[in-house]
Every structure is written in structure tokens, then in C-alpha cells.
Computed example of a mutant assay.
Amino acid sequence: MTRISDYFLRIAVLAGLLGMGMGMMMGMRQDFSLAPAHAHLNLLGWVSMAIYALFYRAVPIAADGLMPRLHFFTAVVALAVMIPGIALINLGYDIGELLAAVGGAAMLVGFALFGVIVLKATAPGRA
């Protein structure tokens, strides 16, 4: 049995803690210029990763094989590239646009992989 669910859940908790910490810092400073990065970190990091974890835990057969590992790698790398990219855009750095675009494309690929995994694991006649 794979531990992909555990890995996704660990990333989700880490992203949630970072996102909440970021929100606290923005509130204390009354500077909300990084709100888009904060929102994406919470949604794509905490919420999406937690949903992935719960799906793989609820449907263990979905966690078997190479595709779930590719999904995990793609989702984590996308998050690690996209969030700093969004932050850099809001701080006025041009490189942020490239990072956000690459990270966003990788996030889409990761979600498409997840879609295929879900369709295969929940197909009619599947045990």
C-alpha cells in the first residue's frame, strides 16, 4: 500500500500553517499586497492537497501505480513555483510572471492527472 495520502496530507498541513502565518503577518502589518499569494497558498496548498489526501485514503486502489506519484510530484512542484511567482508579481518583479505561468501550467497538468486517476478508480465495475 502506498503512503501517497500521508504525503499529500503532510504537504496540506504545511501549506495551511504557512498560509495562516502569512495571513497573520499581513494582518499585523496591515499590508495585504500579498493577499493573492496567500489565497492561492491556502486554496491550492491546504485545501486541494487535503482533498487529494482524503480521496487517496478513501479510495486506496487509486493510490496504486506510477500516476499518483506523478500527480504528487507535479502538484508539489507546481505549488512551490506558483506561489512565489504570484508573490513576486505583487512585489513588482517581472520574473514572477514566468514562475506563476509555469507553476499554473504544472498545477493544471497535476489536476488533469488527478482527474484521470479519479475516472479510472471510480469507473463502473471497478471494485
Rank of each mutant, 00 (worst) to 15 (best):
F114T: 01
I117F: 00
N90T: 02
G115T: 10
L113C: 02
I86L: 12
L88K: 09
M107S: 09
A112F: 10
L113T: 04
A101M: 15
L88T: 01
A105P: 03
G96N: 10
L91M: 14
L113M: 12
P84N: 05
G103S: 10
A105E: 08
D94G: 09
L99C: 09
G104M: 06
F114M: 07
V116D: 08
L98D: 13
M107L: 13
P84G: 04
I95P: 08
G110S: 06
I95M: 15
Y93I: 10
N90V: 02
K120Y: 12
F114Y: 07
A121G: 06
A101P: 05
G85M: 05
L108D: 02
A101K: 11
I86A: 01
M107H: 05
G115C: 08
G96P: 12
E97F: 15
G85H: 00
L99H: 00
A106Q: 03
I86H: 02
L91S: 11
A106N: 01
T122H: 09
L119Y: 14
A101S: 15
L108E: 00
Y93F: 15
L91W: 09
K120C: 11
I86S: 06
L98N: 13
N90E: 11
A106R: 01
A121R: 00
A121W: 00
G104S: 09
L113I: 08
F111P: 02
V116L: 13
